[in-house]
Structure formats: structure tokens, C-alpha cells
Amino acid sequence: MSRISQRLNQAKASGKKILVAYVVNGDPFPQATLPTLHAMVAQGVDVIELGVPFSDPMAEGPVIQKGHERALEHGTSLKGTLELVKQFRATNNTTPVVLMGYANPVERFGYSEFAKAAANAGVDGLLTVDLPPEEVVVLKAELDANGLDNIFLLAPTTTVERAKKIAAHASGFLYYVSLKGVTGAGHLDVDSVKSKLAEFGQLTDLPLCVGFGIKDPETAKAIAGLADGVVIGSVLVDKMGSQADKTAEEIAASVGAIISGIRNAIDTL
């Protein structure tokens, strides 16, 4: 069983909600990422979503865009990101790592080469924002062959018909985008998330995690009450960006503190 399924089953068995956390590799400087990942795990993150920086992050709001820009200034690449996951695996062999990014760096790497290298490095899944099911076919075959999960997005604009199709392609978990917009947007509406999740929940046995726009423990708690898990990103990236002049350990500790607040909130449902 994949690390992702193993961890998600564990959470389910213990009646706990899944906490997924996103940071950008190499942001605000390369040495900050590894201690931050370990701090996140120590404070209760179930799945790490590691952002692979891209020059044109079309689906990101200003906060995460800046995270990508900072990481790229330090020359962070997809190859380097696989190296980092390898280092992470040296001391953590249980927490799933999903790479989240855009198609072009993966295209450039080569689909087959990438899938092999990612599996080797200890990556568990891939979420490519701009590869919907229609365009991911070739890459997905390579991911499947290497035991990597393909994580898909569902959006408020996704029809039930289409959601069925997406669910049929997906593995690991499904990521519901809570609002129309970009990451870090400020207009999340809990009621509309509730009604969409009620529809989509019927279509799949996969866990549904909700992200985009969850910024504080209260919202995390409200959303966790409706879903199998929550995804936190922009608040963490914002925090990291504001501490570019601090040490890696200080950055890791401050991210850990945010995670701990969210973990407590969703554990006291």
C-alpha cells in the first residue's frame, strides 16, 4: 500500500482529520526547507505537499507567487526538489510527500525519467495544477508504472458528470478547491463548500481534502467538519517569506507553531 493510503487509512481508523500542508521548496532560501518539513511533521502534518517553483504559477495568488519567485532566485529546480525529498527520507520514511507544481518542469525533465527519479527519491504523488485528466494520460501511465499517486483537483465549477470521471482517474485523495479563484484568496464560503462536498462525497471512496483560502484555525475547523481533511498553504508561505532574514531553525519553528494551532483546532471537532 502506498504511503499516502497508509497514512490516510490510519487517520480514518483513529477518527482524525487529515492535515495537508504546503510550502515551496527553496523558499525563502534552500536550507530552510528541510527543517521546516520536519517541524511540520512534528506538529501533526499528515501529508506534505511540496511546491515545485515555476516561473509562471498561473493558479497562485500573490503570496505563493512570491514564494515561487524567492525559490527561483536561489535556483531551485525540480531536480533539486527530488534531492531534497531524498534527504527528508533519510530520517522520515512514513510521512507522504506529494509534489505540487506545473506541467512544464516535468515535461522538460521527461515524463518517464521524472516518474522513475521521483519514485526513487521517495516521492508518493504528484499534483500538476495545469494537467487535467484529458492531458495527463501519458504522464499518468508513467506515474502508475512507478507506484506514484496522481492527485486531482475538483473545483466549485466542476460538474457532477466530470467529477465522476476525475474520481475514476484519481488515487490517493481528491483535492477540492474551496473557491473560484487562486490560492490564498479571501472569499471562502463554508456553506457552498458544504453543498459541493455533499455532492462529490457520493461519487468516490477516496478521501476529500479541501484547500485554497483556509487561513486560520477557526476556518480549518469549520471545513474539517465537512471533509476528510484540510490543506494549508498561503499562511505558511507568507510566514516563511516574512522571515527571510531569520535562520532556518527559526523559520521552521514559526511554521511549526502555525501547524500546531491548526492541528489542535481540527482535533477538537
Binding site: D130, P132, L153, L154, T157, T158, I166, V177
Partner: peptide, 12 residues
């Protein structure tokens, strides 16, 4: 060509 966009835009 094709359609390499995030899920939100597929409907549009």
C-alpha cells in the same frame, strides 16, 4: 495545443 489549465477554468 490542448487545454492545460486548472480545473476551475474547464467549465468556462
Amino acid at each position: 495545443g490542448g487545454r492545460f489549465v486548472s480545473e476551475t477554468l474547464i467549465y468556462a
